[in-house]
């Protein structure tokens, strides 16, 4: 006689569909009804913010945008760009933006989108206060080139203007760059290899798994400060005072994290119960 099927003994495909459906339901709910769970600013984000605003008057920041495609869609790095443009206005800082993204020209597209849609450029002049090199092929070759001589990284900027005709690039050397920033989704090793020997402040923002991999560099102070993935970007907005989608995504992150843990516990409890039943 066959045993009566329990209601939770459903097929694998249905289980998967149920898992996805609940996830979509949870994340969709917070879109309609934000929870507004408070976010405390951690020491790491505070360090990042302090290191960025500590750039001296008239200093130079180099920013390498190499984050993943999610950044292009969500524009979650808008806050960093806004902070840097505030520094341009307040402290006459110069900004060099480049992308060595392994995803290809999408890195350059990310920069264009952030500059076009997210940043208030009033009071700044392209070529005098900031320059965009765009996406450059070669990944670590670009980083190596930057560390050797910023003048030889590329012949033209992202818009075809020769570097020699850009006012802020005249007589600029790598040694003049005060702060190196990068965002990435792959290992931090290439940036550390190429920029570490320059002994300048290096700031990183990247995914949570990347932070774990970069901890030795942070401990030995090769890496000055880091943002802790999506949470770090949201914390930066807490400090800056203007909120974007990075903060809005935190509610969904909270629920998805709890949901993932609940799934782990559920699957383990079911597995152990099944083992005991077989014994």
């Amino acid at each position: 006689m066959t045993e009566k099927k329990k209601w939770y003994n459903i097929s694998m495909d249905v289980q998967d569909s149920l898992v996805y459906f609940i996830l979509i339901l949870l994340c969709g709910t917070v879109v309609l009804y934000p929870l507004g769970i408070p976010l405390n600013v951690t020491k790491e984000t505070r360090e990042y913010y302090d290191a960025l605003i500590a750039v001296p008057e008239g200093g130079v920041i180099l920013y390498d945008e190499a984050y993943m495609v999610q950044s292009y869609v969500t524009g979650s790095e808008i806050t960093m760009f806004r902070m840097m443009f505030d520094l341009i206005r307040e402290k006459d800082v110069k900004l060099i933006i480049v992308s060595s993204c392994v995803d290809g020209p999408l890195g350059g597209a990310m920069i264009d989108k952030l500059l076009a849609e997210g940043v208030d450029k009033t009071g700044t002049t392209y070529g005098v206060d900031y320059v965009n090199f765009g996406w450059l092929p070669g990944f670590e070759l670009v980083l190596s080139s930057i560390s050797k001589n910023i003048q030889t990284v590329t012949m033209n900027d992202a818009y075809g203007t020769p570097i020699s005709q850009i006012p802020m690039m005249k007589d600029l050397t790598t040694a003049d760059i005060d702060v190196f920033c990068f965002s990435c989704s792959v290992s931090a090793d290439p940036w550390m290899r190429q920029w570490g020997p320059l002994h300048k402040p290096i700031l990183m923002s990247g995914g949570s798994s990347l932070i774990a991999q970069a901890m030795p560099y942070y401990e030995s102070r090769v890496l000055t400060a880091y943002l802790n993935g999506a949470r770090g970007l949201a914390e930066l907005e807490q400090i800056y005072g203007k909120f974007t989608i990075a903060t809005a995504l935190m509610d969904a992150t909270n629920l998805a994290s709890l949901y993932g843990i609940a799934l782990i516990l559920y699957s383990n409890i079911r597995y152990q119960m099944g083992r005991r039943k077989m014994q």
Partner: peptide, 30 residues
Amino acid sequence: VFRGARTKSYLGVLLLLGSIFTVLRMAPIG
């Protein structure tokens, strides 16, 4: 996670606990 994160030993339990603590450290709700 749903299908594969099943612990069969004490080390597995330790690994899972570490993952859970790491996830809850990153999520603001933790």
